[in-house]
């Protein structure tokens, strides 16, 4: 059970203008500006939930993760995870969580992966039997049996990420934080990682909190999303709910010969470059076939495609809506 209540965090950022003179001046008198990284953030996440935590860069995602994992303390507010305050009972708390940073490694660079695993076993004091069981499962599910004897520096990014994930789960944590776990991975590795996350969430009831910019991750994995922007929680709901907000919108991409396509109150031409146009319709007002009929009445259609809104577009429209 994760509970955040009115969490606030302000950072002091040193500022100076460009140029050598300014640099010298800043040496003696620094000017600071204050950035509100988290502004009254509250949410609850139950056991076994899988939550996508999204927002643009600098929105406060990492800060929230840092607070929840006990690396950082907030300026104000409460955060209780499994009955503990993370930054006050750090050691007890981190024993029950696993954290994967997509951009940072937790494995020892020069030695085979298996050595890192064994050291982590000691660090977390995992009993032999449990370690054996977890190790066996992870190696099988993540398909890393072949690579655990290779030094980390010789692994590909996809291989390394699978090992990273395994490493963060050896101590059977109750909560898994994944910070951009699929960043930079190829399609095959991405799918493997997603499948794996789904499996452990389902089988072990591990709570998963996932930050990502990859909307396919969100679509494939999470039912609930929390959107953060400029340090504030803007939206907290199910993905379906979010989709239904503008599910009626369809985009028609048309190649045609003839005059420009006229806009009407039901057909919004968003782009028309003469011969190539994009039209947005609301399917609750006009059906797709009617729209096509209307367009083909005006011009000769050479090619056409119809698309519903993707999660990507949804997010962009959300960002626009909240001006973040």
């Amino acid at each position: 059970m994760i509970e955040l209540k009115n969490i606030n965090k302000t950072f002091r950022v040193a500022k100076r203008n460009a140029g050598f003179r300014e640099a010298v001046r800043a040496l003696f008198r620094k000017e600071y500006s204050y950035v509100k990284a988290l502004d009254d953030v509250s949410f609850k996440i139950g056991d076994g939930e899988m939550v996508g935590y999204i927002g643009p860069n600098g929105a406060g995602k990492s800060s929230t993760i840092k607070i929840m994992s006990g690396i950082m303390s907030p300026d104000g507010g409460e955060c209780v995870i499994n009955g503990r305050v993370p930054w006050k009972q750090r050691k007890e708390h981190v024993r029950e969580i696993g954290v994967v940073f997509g951009q940072r490694s937790q494995l020892w660079w020069d030695v085979p992966v298996i050595d890192s695993f064994e050291l982590l076993k000691n660090v977390y004091k995992v009993p032999d039997a449990q370690y054996k069981k977890n190790y066996g499962e992870l190696v099988e599910l993540l398909d890393i049996g072949e690579i655990v004897r290779t030094p980390v520096r010789q692994l590909s990014l996809g291989q390394r990420m699978r090992c990273e994930i395994a490493a963060s789960l050896l101590h059977s944590p109750k909560i898994l934080f994944l910070d951009e776990p699929t960043i930079g991975l190829d399609a095959v590795s991405k799918i493997a990682v997603r499948e794996f996350i789904k499996t452990i969430n389902r089988e072990n009831k591990t709570t998963v909190i996932l930050t990502t910019h990859d909307m396919q991750d969100i679509e494939a994995l999470t039912e609930r999303i929390i959107l953060i922007g400029k340090g504030r929680i803007l939206l907290d709901g199910s993905l379906d709910e979010l989709k239904s907000r503008n599910s009626g919108k369809k985009t028609l991409t048309i190649s045609y010969v003839g005059e420009k396509i006229p806009s009407s109150d039901k057909l919004t031409v968003v782009k028309d470059m003469g011969g190539h146009a994009e039209i947005v319709i609301d399917s609750s007002e006009i059906s797709v076939s009617d729209a096509i009929a209307a367009v083909s009445g005006a011009v000769e259609i050479k090619d056409i495609s119809v698309e519903g809104t993707t999660v990507d577009e949804l997010v962009v429209s959300l960002y626009k809506e909240f001006r973040i």
Binding site: S69, G70, I71, E92, V94, F101, R104, Q106, V123
Partner: peptide, 8 residues
């Protein structure tokens, strides 16, 4: 940060 995430 990584060190702080370990229970030691």
């Amino acid at each position: 940060d990584r060190l702080l995430l370990r229970p030691r």
